[in-house]
Write a protein that binds this DNA or RNA. Structure first.
Lengths: 105, 105
DNA sequence: CCAGAATATGTCGGATATGACATAAAATGC
DNA sequence: GCATTTTATGTCATATCCGACATATTCTGG
């Protein structure tokens, strides 16, 4: 995912307007990162909306609580595939998916 | 991606109405597969619209022609991340991404 | 037809993502 | 305040994905 840099800067107190403002991220890479961040936020929203804990969601997607935590914190080791699977497993409707994407796409 | 089954059946002459009609694919898995198929189709469309060969696109995304071919043929070894990267590299606009998704989402 | 371009398929070693576990840190509510 | 639940972080062996290469197949114009 290569959000490592972004995450570190966030942790250091930066507030990024858009994820692509940092050196070393091409437009394409930046677009992908922003897409992921938007979906990651949606995962947490949808999960909570359905009253699920991370452990609950983990079971639904045959994964583990720690991985769900990594998904939601934007860990660099998390793929777009996994994010989308989490979204579906959390019970996101197609409309919710579209809505999440509309913030970035 | 686990489209292997789907692909084999397609090759064998089956015409799937929706990708999830096959046994062994949960709703969640089916949704992901359909999402990927929609985006994969968009990659080819956008690439051709911009007059790019697979080799051209491969260069743009620092990949190889064979991998682009695998993307567009829905090879099971291709991640959603790679599909989206291909889409951006092919020059897809955000609107085109949304449009591609609207067929499934 | 055929030559050249484009696309597809098979394979492989190295790179990255994964679930799982342990454990720490925060949040919750009583 | 404390016990319990929830969430975060670090690590690891394994699974999966990756670019690259070789080669086959299909497409296109002459």
């Amino acid at each position: 995912m290569n959000t490592g840099k972004l995450k570190r800067l966030r942790a250091a107190g930066w507030k990024a307007g858009s994820a692509g403002e940092f050196l070393g991220l091409s437009d394409q890479e930046a677009a992908l990162v922003e897409l992921k961040l938007a979906l990651v936020a949606a995962v947490r929203e949808v999960r909570r909306k359905h009253g699920l804990s991370q452990t609950d969601l983990a079971q639904r997607m045959h994964s583990s609580q720690s991985r769900v935590a990594k998904i939601e914190t934007g860990d660099q080791s998390v793929s777009l595939d996994l994010i989308v699977r989490a979204l579906f497993a959390a019970g996101a409707t197609r409309r919710e998916l579209q809505r999440a994407l509309s913030t970035v796409a």
